[in-house]
Design a binder for these strands. Structure first.
Length: 778
DNA sequence: CACTGTGGCCGTGGGA
DNA sequence: TCCCACGGCCACTACC
């Protein structure tokens, strides 16, 4: 049989490679590749080699040097692992630390979610190869969400039932959605089962009936699937979630994941937090509510979560509607990230399950491993603990930063070096293998490291491929309208390529990297520092005030109406740079606030806020969004920042703070705005220190409330007591509040983080007498 | 291996 | 006994 199909997933079944494939017509089938055996390379001599396994003599490259090695095959991954240390004692072992599934994907040049042509007999693969095909991967997808009984605060899966399971997805392009439960809700999207057990079985049947390829949830690695797994165990649910007879597989350890055999489980929360961490999206909070409103404009129904058990006991439909909305929100977000994840998976050759949980460095690693295989070069090992520690404790000198003079400024131009580190790596051929290589022509970095110019390194080659591919897609993308399928898929491709290209430098200096190169990293940052400092001097020579410089960005103050001079300056800088390097205009800003964090030992932190001509605000560094701060402190800080940005008026910002202080003093503040949230992580008696939240919780227990480890408490600092802990009471028991505490320990520290740097003193804010005016900052 | 960072508050111990 | 400095504890997310 010969067939074209999408490669959905690869896993191990009894030590054999198993492929999950989906034909163009939608038939899902499994194949095994029994002929593929694990191996490593070995340089050295051993007596009675033949008894140790199957050997092949072969030639590989170590950097640019050819070496003869043995390729040693094993029956299965376990045997390889067992034999490894023996071989290590007799010589050098290479590529023994590559996971078997990835060994397979690399050697067969397969890209997950891509199209393959496979020849097979029965369920055995004879031959398989990737083929170029533009047919879109169109999996059956389903997002789900569960609600659980939470009378005790937090739900405990061994006791508290799962109340309902909602789903929203697309099967063969058609929308499906609904809620499974076992209480008689009358909504037409609800399916009512006899009991919880049958509901969970019903959900498993739903996955099967709809042939779900991708199942997604929000925080489902940590909450929903582990919860369902535990409930299934407690209730004796037999129906499998997987495409074989298997149950949900939970990984142990710190990074929790949940696997369902034959389907790809995506935890959308993990994807969103990854995008937020690398700066691709900018979210203050990563709640499903915030992410869906901010990223896809979906406003979901809201309830107070701790009241879920009460809503369950009521008769109206609030809870089922809420539950369904969570799945719909998850689906919107999945649609937003899925094209990107598919591309990341394809480009890097990582399984979609892994791609959606990877850090950026994992993508780079995978690409460099594939590039090594392509070039017949040996893949470097994951570093041993000692070398990790050595690398870790010996960090390289970082970027150039010129701290700003704190203040409010007008007319700010922000200029960035386009992809600074990637362009340096490519321009100067920076790579562990070109470093100190015997070579005719070389480049010497400011640090004195020599890089060969004539023999192209593995990393610059791979990186240039990424950059070129991205430029091509970006160009092509412009031919299509914004909402078209073509535009969206090209956008996702270039986005994925950008993410990976930007992570290459980080991977070279990441202590656990296979391709770690200290000299390379040092040289890259040194060249970057040189480029940005030269641009800075040139800016000063051209009459601009350089407000702030960080890594690859310049913040210049220009004269009102002289935007064109900035443009002239930019062109001037670009003339001095190598071809691949370029200074770009990020934006012109009407006003900006800079706050210099104290010039401590460990690197200064970016702290600024800008507003452009369209009124779009860009804030970096001083957001106070932690929930262990009261709302009144957060809100006042936000208002101060907004007033400063929009009006540029320090006096008005001060007046804003004074209004809040007055409100607090007159005891007119709402208690809910004063609530501080915190989590009780362990049993109350195990605390060594009586912190405010613990003290409040203990008092509440005396009044008969039970506070279990893991529950979140809201407390208020009241008048009664001496220390802050004594004054703390859970919100439900608080009758008044300590105005001094909220003024001195909440509002003032929050606003002084900004105003303090602009010369405002605590006394200026506390003083209610006639306001003195504060100077103009320009 | 890893919340490898930051900052508030408690609790202790020394000095006045 | 009070005050202050300092060391150390603890939480910070997100799901219900």
């Amino acid at each position: 049989m010969n067939e074209k199909a999408f490669l959905i997933d690869v896993d191990l079944f009894k030590e054999t490679i198993r492929l999950i494939l989906k034909s163009e017509k939608g038939r899902v089938f499994r194949l095994f590749d029994k002929n593929f055996k694990p191996y490593f390379y070995f340089k050295g001599e051993i007596e009675n080699l033949k008894e140790r396994g199957v050997f092949e003599k072969t030639e590989k490259l170590l950097g640019f040097n050819k070496i003869d090695v043995w390729k040693v095959f094993f029956k299965n991954p376990q045997e390889l692992k067992r034999e490894r240390s023996f071989f290590e004692s007799k010589g050098t072992v290479f590529e023994a630390d590559i996971p078997f599934i990835y060994r397979y994907l690399i050697d067969k040049k397969l890209t997950p979610t891509g199209m393959v042509e496979v020849e097979y007999e029965g369920n055995e693969v004879k031959e398989i190869k990737t083929i170029e095909d533009e047919t879109a991967f169109n999996p059956n997808i389903l997002c789900f969400d569960i609600e659980t009984y939470n009378e005790k605060g937090t739900s405990n899966p061994s006791k508290d039932p799962c109340l309902m399971i909602s789903y929203a997805g697309r099967v063969k392009g058609k929308k499906i959605e609904g809620v499974l439960t076992y209480k008689n809700f009358k909504k037409d999207f609800v399916t009512v089962f006899e009991n919880e057990k049958q509901m969970i079985e019903g959900f498993a049947e739903l996955l099967k009936k709809n042939k779900i390829d991708i199942i997604a949830g929000y925080y489902s690695d940590v909450f929903d699937l582990p919860y369902l797994a535990e409930r299934s165990k407690v209730l004796g649910v037999k129906t499998p979630f997987g495409r074989d007879k298997s149950k949900i597989k939970l990984s142990k350890g710190v990074k929790k994941t949940a696997k369902i055999t034959g389907r790809v489980h995506v935890d959308v929360f993990k994807v969103i937090s990854f995008l937020n961490a690398i700066g691709s999206v900018k979210l203050h909070r990563l709640t499903l509510e915030n992410a869906s409103t901010e990223l896809v404009g979906f406003k979901k129904k809201m309830i107070i979560k701790k009241n879920i058990f009460e809503l369950w006991n009521e008769t109206d439909d609030t809870l089922v509607e809420y539950c369904l909305d969570d799945s719909k929100a998850c689906l919107e977000l999945l649609d937003f990230v899925m094209p990107l994840e598919v591309e990341l998976s394809k480009i890097s050759g990582t399984l979609l399950f892994d791609a959606s949980r990877n850090a950026a460095s994992n993508f780079v690693e995978s690409i460099l491993m594939r590039e090594s295989f392509e070039k017949n070069t040996l893949i470097p090992p994951i570093p041993k603990d000692e070398s990790f520690k050595e690398r870790y404790s010996n960090p390289i000198q970082g970027a150039f930063v010129k701290m700003p003079n704190p203040g409010i400024y007008e007319n700010i131009a922000v200029l960035d070096f386009k992809s600074l580190y990637p362009s340096i790596i490519i321009s100067y051929n920076i790579d562990p293998s070109t470093l100190n290589l015997e070579c005719e022509d070389f480049f010497i970095s400011p640090q004195g490291h020599k890089f060969c110019k004539t023999k192209k390194g593995l990393i610059p080659t791979a990186l240039e491929n990424l950059v070129n591919a991205r430029n091509k897609f970006k160009k092509e993308m412009k031919k299509f309208e914004l909402e078209t399928f073509e535009y969206k898929s090209l956008f996702a491709r270039q986005w994925a390529l950008k993410i990976i290209a930007n992570a290459v430098y980080g991977y070279m200096v990441y202590p656990r990297s296979r391709f770690y190169c200290r000299e390379c990293g040092e040289s890259i940052t040194a060249i970057a520092r040189k480029s940005i400092s030269e641009a800075m001097s040139l800016a000063e020579k051209n009459g601009f005030t350089v407000l702030y410089v960080d890594t690859d960005s310049l913040f210049l103050k220009f004269n009102q109406g002289e935007e064109s001079k900035v443009e002239e300056f930019r062109k001037l800088v670009n003339k001095t740079l190598p071809e691949k390097m370029e200074l770009e205009l990020e934006d012109f800003y009407e006003r900006g606030i800079f706050v210099s964090k104290k010039q401590g030992v460990a690197g200064a932190k970016k702290k600024y806020a800008l507003i452009n001509k369209k009124g779009v605000v860009k804030i970096r560094g001083f957001e106070l969004v932690r929930r262990d701060w009261s709302k009144i402190a957060r809100e006042t800080q936000r208002k101060v920042l907004e007033t400063l940005l929009k009006k540029g008026d320090l006096n008005e910002a001060v007046a804003e703070v004074k209004r809040t202080i007055k409100l607090l003093k007159e005891e007119k503040a709402e208690l809910q705005d004063l609530e501080i949230h915190s989590t009780i992580t362990k049993s109350l008696k195990n605390y060594e220190v009586l912190s405010p939240e613990v003290s409040a919780a203990l008092k509440a227990e005396k009044k008969g409330l039970k506070i279990e480890p893991g529950s979140s408490v809201g407390f208020i600092i009241t008048k009664k007591g001496k220390s802050i802990s004594e004054k703390a009471e859970l919100s439900e028991f608080a009758k008044d509040y300590d105005a001094d505490y909220y003024i001195n320990n909440q509002v003032l520290p929050a606003v002084l983080k900004i105003l303090g740097e602009l010369g405002i003193k605590k006394e200026d804010l506390l003083n209610d007498s006639k306001q003195k005016t504060f100077g103009d900052w320009n």
